[in-house]
Each structure stands twice: as structure tokens, then as C-alpha cells.
Simulated scan of single mutants.
Amino acid sequence: MSPTQVIVIVLVVLVVVAALAVVLRRAARRRALQSRFGPEYDRVVAEQDSRSAAEQELRGRERRHAELTLTPLTPESQARYAAAWEELQIRFVDSPAETVSDADELVGRLIAERGYPTGEFDDQAAHLSVEHAQTLSHYRDAHEIRLRNERGEAETEELRQAVVHYRALFAELLGEDPVSSHTPEQHHSDTPPGDRPDATPTDRPHDATSR
């Protein structure tokens, strides 16, 4: 084998190794994004023209999130928000439509107090997705029901589900989940709470919120 052939083989090997390193690094970054963003990763991929564009969007979210100054709540603030949520659930039986709007406002105040920017829903969701991707789908579902509610198109059971969805993000943002996990009962429901798929063992037909 001539020296020239040896040099060519070495160069080919180096190119292959470099290409393999790029592929492995890209795969590792992809796994990291998938792990961090969970279902949000798939949603963004479906929205973008390509997987590369989606991953670029998600990395951009990480950079913007790193610029935020997020602060944990004080125990006093946690207690105040928890009490406000319990009161909100109690009001649901008599005023389900108004309660959904109140829940949206309460979650918005909590988001702002934690240090996240408020404004357009999509921008807000993008910031939240970096650390709260697992519960963000609940927030999106609640938002959609709230919009339907404003148009007078949401049924009472949908409104109850909206409160359940809001609670998922609300409790996570509180940090220590002091909020009751039980959901407001459907007003004048024909289905006993124990027979609903999402009912909890301590749901009681006579309670507004099963605290």
C-alpha cells in the first residue's frame, strides 16, 4: 500500500468519525429536548415545517427562559393562593361559567408572581413549557374551554374539566402542591361522583368541592 493510499484511508476514517460524532451529538441533543419538553416536543414538531425547525424553536425557548428571573413563593403567598383556590371551587356549583374565568385570572396572577411574563397566551405558554411541559397541555385545554365559554358554547361538564385543567398547572406553580386534588362537582349532575372515570375516592355528592 502506497503512502498516498494510507493518507487517503486515514482521511476517510477521520471524516467518518467526525460525521458519526455530529450524528451522536445531534441525537443526544434531541433526546435532551424530548425529555425536557415531553408532549410539547411532539406538538411543536407537528406545527413546524421540519424537526430541525421545531428543535431550533425549543432551544430558543430555553435561551429566553434562562433570561427570566423566577422566584419561589413565600409560605404566606402559597397559603393565600391555596385558600383562593378552595374558595373558587366552592363557587363552581352556583356559578360554573364565572368560576372558569376566575380560575384563568387566578392562574394568571400566580404566573406573573412567579416571574413569568404575561401577555399573549402563546408567548406565555412558550415560556412555561421549559419547566412545566408536563402540565402545559392542561393549561392549553383550559384555555380552549375558556374561549368556548366566552362564546357561550361550553357545557357545564366542560367547565368542570376546565377547572381541573387549570388546577394542574396552578398546583405545580405553587411548588408544594397544597391545593386539594378533588374537583368541583358538576352542577345537578345525573352521574354519581363515584361512577365518573375521573372521580376520586373521597368525592361526595353533597359537597361542592370535596375538600
Rank of each mutant, 00 (worst) to 15 (best):
V164Y: 15
H127K: 13
T183K: 10
P193K: 01
R61A: 00
R31Q: 05
L159G: 06
A19V: 15
R26G: 14
F121A: 12
Q89C: 08
E131Q: 02
Q56P: 14
E57S: 14
H138K: 02
Q78A: 15
S180C: 00
S35Y: 05
F37C: 02
Q89K: 07
A171H: 06
D102I: 06
Q5A: 08
Q134E: 05
T209D: 12
L169T: 05
N149W: 07
G115D: 06
R196G: 14
T4H: 00
V12N: 10
S129W: 11
L24T: 07
P197Y: 04
S181H: 13
P201H: 02
Q134W: 10
E86L: 12
R36A: 12
A162N: 06
P178L: 09
T71W: 07
T183H: 10
I111A: 00
H165M: 01
H138C: 10
R196D: 06
R29W: 06
G115C: 09
G115M: 08
E87H: 09
T118G: 05
P75H: 02
T69C: 03
P192S: 05
D94E: 13
A66L: 10
P72K: 07
V179L: 05
S50L: 09
V10D: 03
R196V: 15
E98G: 14
L58F: 13
I145A: 04
P75M: 01
A46Y: 01
R91H: 07
E153Y: 02
E120M: 14
A84C: 03
R109G: 11
L136H: 01
E150H: 06
V93W: 02
